[in-house]
């Protein structure tokens, strides 16, 4: 890993400019440490020795860029990750949402959908899925395509089952999916109330009004400026007293919007918009 050509901060800046100018994706306000790692990994995987060569491929091969984009963004996700969070959702947030005739939830940065499937299961068990609309968005079209299929690797199900039980799950977890070879397919009924669509948090705007926004472990890939802009977007997209769920190590403490939210649970990072 050490023998590969290094990438300097200046070279990364140049790449960001190239991608923005040529393809319109703006990574300028992404966290540099993570982005540097991803670019290095892409170069290793594609056996591209220098940043000069990488620039050549990016400028001349659209199909290479599609692969590069897919590899650059982190698409890792889990079902019922952080069971304590889902327990809080079930016990504290969902009962409050029940008072709305139509519940609207936004999963921002949904990757391949595992958290969306988890939310749908939770809502089904609380008897609310029928009157919920889940908007699940991601920057990456390949992720959305996979998410719509509702498939999850079979190898992950043991862990997800344990997570589900710890989160206070009420049913047999296996009743929600069908195993097919090396993957499972989630019950299509779970996805009937879900709309997957492309949305770029960097450039796109408010598109609806929600009672709950889940954006867990997405902001960590952004710098503070972009985090502030996205949190403002979330504030503007929430109804008064709407809920915002962040990742376990994402904090509002130093963010511009901090005084406009109150903590519902500081430990699992659930916040609520003040009126």
């Amino acid at each position: 890993m050490n023998d590969t050509s290094d990438i300097t901060p200046e070279e990364l800046d140049d790449l960001i400019q190239l991608i923005k100018g040529h393809y319109g994706y703006d990574f300028g306000d992404y966290s540099r440490a993570s982005l540097t790692r991803r670019v290095r990994q892409c170069m290793e995987k594609a056996k591209i020795p220098t940043v000069y060569d990488l620039r050549f491929h990016l400028l001349n091969e659209t199909s290479f860029f599609a692969w590069f984009l897919q590899s650059l963004t982190v698409n890792v996700t889990e079902m019922f990750r952080d069971p304590a969070f889902y327990r809080n959702l079930r016990e504290t947030v969902i009962p409050r949402l029940a008072s709305y005739p139509l519940i609207k939830i936004w999963h921002a940065g949904c990757a391949t959908g595992e958290e969306v499937f988890s939310m749908a299961i939770l809502l089904k068990e609380e008897g609310l899925l029928e009157r919920t609309r889940i908007y699940a968005t991601d920057i990456n079209p390949a992720n959305l395509e996979k998410a719509r299929k509702g498939t999850v690797p079979l190898s992950a199900m043991k862990e997800y089952t344990a997570n589900y039980i710890r989160s206070g799950g009420k049913a047999e977890f296996s009743s929600y999916y069908e195993a097919r070879y090396d993957e499972v397919v989630m019950d299509p009924a779970l996805l009937e109330r879900v709309l997957f669509s492309q949305h770029n948090l960097v450039t796109d705007q408010v598109f609806n009004e929600f009672q709950l926004i889940c954006c867990r472990n997405v902001l960590i890939y952004f710098n503070k400026d972009l985090q502030n802009r996205v949190l403002k977007l979330f504030y503007d997209s929430l109804v008064p007293f709407g809920y915002l769920a962040l990742g376990m190590k994402e904090s509002l403490l130093f963010m511009d919007v901090r005084s406009q939210f109150e903590a519902v649970s500081e430990s699992v990072k659930v916040f609520r918009r003040k009126a």
């Binding site: 901060p9 966290s31 540099r32 440490a33 993570s34 790692r37 991803r38 982190v74 890792v76 990750r81 952080d82 472990n217 960590i220 890939y221 710098n223 990742g247 376990m248 190590k249 994402e250």
Partner: peptide, 19 residues
């Protein structure tokens, strides 16, 4: 922290990574 990679930014702050 559990279940994150811990990275360091040029301004000497932490960034978490869930890759």
């Amino acid at each position: 922290p559990q279940n994150y990679h811990l990275l360091i930014e040029q301004d000497r702050s932490f960034s978490l990574d869930y890759s």
